[in-house]
């Protein structure tokens, strides 16, 4: 069974799994640096326009933001348990947990879509008819749209990767424990969760106590 998953240049599956995890960690670090550039820009502009950022932060929808945070953290939990189940040869349980992870991730995107629709209706898209007059508020919302947009692209990529696991292993649950794909996909999905955990306070909690 293990020979099916073995790829050159590796001579055993354990080493192949370690190499995949290490490669994935290096990729994740590059992703962290991508988002860090955005965080740095946000931090600088927040320093220049503190009042505008506080006023703009109050306009994001904290209900959508908080519910979506809970959804993404729960999906991170389900995929973490899925990996543990796969390694314990509980393939069927792992497969259903991956399905649950996919559904949670998909519902995150659906809610984000509803939130974007409301944001647009309230004229929170930077441009000539932007709703807020404080200087710096448009810059805050530029970061809001870019950061949540880039994050949504990552969620979509993660969902495609999770869906691939579900489809490939649907008739052979043991595939989840033999292949290194489950571990790599789970690592990526957790990073998507970690990025959102940081986005939540800087986009949704700003200015709430200053109303």
């Amino acid at each position: 069974m293990s020979d099916v998953f073995l790829r050159p240049p590796f001579d055993n599956l354990a080493r192949q799994h370690r190499a995949v995890a290490f490669g994935m960690w290096l990729f994740l670090v590059s992703e962290v640096l991508l988002f860090s550039g955005l965080f740095a820009g946000y931090g600088l502009y927040r320093g220049i326009y503190p009042a505008g950022f506080l006023a703009a932060g109050r306009e994001t929808d904290i209900v959508y933001g908080t519910v979506n945070t809970a959804i993404l953290m729960t999906s991170s939990f389900t995929i973490a348990v899925a990996g543990r189940a796969a390694r314990a040869d509980l393939g069927r349980m792992a497969w259903w947990l991956l399905v649950l992870t996919f559904l949670l991730g998909f519902s995150f995107l659906i809610l984000k879509g509803f939130e974007y629709r409301e944001d647009i209706a309230r004229h929170l898209l930077p441009g000539s008819d932007f709703a807020l007059s404080q200087s710096g508020a448009q810059i805050f919302f530029s970061y809001y749209w870019i950061m949540t947009g880039v994050h949504a692209v990552h969620v979509t990529c993660g969902l495609i990767a999770v869906l691939r696991l579900i489809i490939v292993s649907r008739k052979n649950f043991a595939w989840l424990s033999g292949s290194a794909s489950e571990d790599a996909t789970a690592l990526y999905w957790h990073l998507v969760d970690v990025i959102w955990i940081v986005l939540y306070p800087i986009l949704y909690l700003v200015g709430r106590a200053h109303g």
Partner: peptide, 17 residues
């Protein structure tokens, strides 16, 4: 709020990852 976010990220990294 940033410290709490860092703590949450550390929990995900240490246990889930």
């Amino acid at each position: 709020s940033l410290c709490i976010a860092a703590l949450k990220a550390a929990l995900v990294g240490m246990v889930f990852m």
